[in-house]
Design a protein around this nucleic acid. Structure first.
Lengths: 252, 252
DNA sequence: CAGTGGTCTAGACCACTCT
DNA sequence: GAGTGGTCTAGACCACTGT
């Protein structure tokens, strides 16, 4: 005999999968579920906690529990270099999304470099770097954190240090400064968000995040920037295209 | 005043972050944590459940709770096409990993096509397809699910339908059959695993997965295969490289 | 106001592991 | 046998939402 809480969570999971419970539907109250399945409220709550941690439902205090909706934005790592390739005009995010309710807040600071950034930038932990912190939102709800780190020697005193949109794109500015980014290395980690990310992104319990690092290089292999994007998994799909003739590096 | 369980989970999370509790370390028992923080065992368990769902700890019945270890394999989507580019010799996974304790189990079936595969392959749901299901393991612990779907008209009766390693790589076989894969479209979803994936991959609670779809096209834009990889987030980092001159499609 | 989910307690029994 | 985590109960108080 499986535990009662597992029986209950399986029953509810099946109802969601089958469509008996649809996106946005309200589940029966914890008390009624307890009566229906002849278990205590503690056991009901344990079953609901399981579904919550799977990202299937969401609970609102004083109201009830609901089947979660899922809508995803398309996220293309390749757009980061595309800035300076096809269309050298604008910050890709705003260029394509602004007319559809997108916005972003920008903060620029000069900070001591955290270890995980220093390691990727090839500088010493604690060196000063210029940091552009952005939270991108869509119709009022945040949907990604986008923190860019630039070596102080490259960015200080330039447009990059201003806390404003850079209409023609940061890659264009880097090129004008003689530090064109021609190559990028991407790393994607899949993990649960920490409390700070949960707060900044208004992440619901049971939502995983992708952490997408971009390390940008010049032709002479200098790191011109390190970007750390945090993408809530329930709001994104990561897309890219590859061609056999594209000369994929396939480095060991 | 924050809830007691949040105070306790924050204290423990901080000890892990600071290194007071290291990877593999045993936490105090639930009973002793209850005494130390003057809360009931239920409250202790609620705090530990939070840390478990964040992937920070793991509990073993009858033994105790431990700080989780994290080791990651490098996962390169670009290797999928690389098969037929640089080194047409072997299945990339085994070529590079076998000498280090890697193994895989293969099952080949002819099945009715699930909707999510049919949509990507451009066939009708319920059409028959050849499915190669693999679970890749490393030193005895599974680390990814790799299910490949081929149109029946291409794969039936060929080497692809044999449940064996294909030493020179499936891409090579496709080329020999006149269906060379020259282009691929990648989609990555970040989500919590479902119970079947938890079981097949022995996934611990609090571990998110990446679902990596690859849609392979011929030069005439026919889909030659659809691959669905499931990657436990705690065992992988996804890597790729990009070059400005690489002719990135940047398709809208 | 009644109903909901959030928190918390004290206590119980079980299966399991380690010594 | 002692200790551990897993399960489960009955009951309590709270803050919050709706009517």
């Amino acid at each position: 005999m499986p535990p009662k809480h597992a029986t209950l969570s399986r029953a509810l999971r099946e109802q969601i999968r089958q469509g008996d419970l649809r996106e946005g539907d309200k589940l029966p109250s914890e008390a009624s579920l307890g009566e229906m399945y002849a278990v205590s409220r503690t056991t009901v709550r344990s079953a609901l906690a399981e579904l919550t941690s799977e990202g299937l439902i969401r609970s609102e205090s004083g109201i009830g529990s609901f089947v979660r909706r899922r809508r995803r934005h398309r996220y293309r790592p390749q757009d980061d270099l595309g800035d300076t390739v096809g269309n050298p005009q604008a910050d890709h995010f705003l260029r394509t999304e602004k007319q559809r309710g997108a916005s972003q807040t920008i903060t620029v600071l000069i900070e001591r470099c955290p270890e995980r950034v220093a390691r990727r930038m090839g500088v010493t932990e604690g060196d000063f770097v210029v940091v552009r912190r952005r939270v991108r939102s869509f119709d009022g709800t945040p949907y990604s954190i986008n923190d860019s780190f630039y070596p102080r020697s490259i960015a200080e005193g330039t447009e990059i240090s201003d806390p404003h949109d850079i209409a023609r794109g940061v890659n264009t500015v880097l090129t004008e400064l003689g530090h064109e980014q021609v190559r990028a290395r991407d790393e994607i980690y899949i993990q649960m968000p920490d409390p700070e990310e949960i707060q900044r992104l208004q992440i619901l319990p049971g939502t995983a995040v992708g952490v997408h690092w971009v390390i940008g290089f010049t032709a002479s292999d200098r790191v011109v920037r390190v970007v750390r994007n945090v993408l809530p998994g329930d709001r994104h799909v990561i897309l890219f295209d590859r061609e056999k003739s594209g000369g994929e590096p396939d480095v060991g």
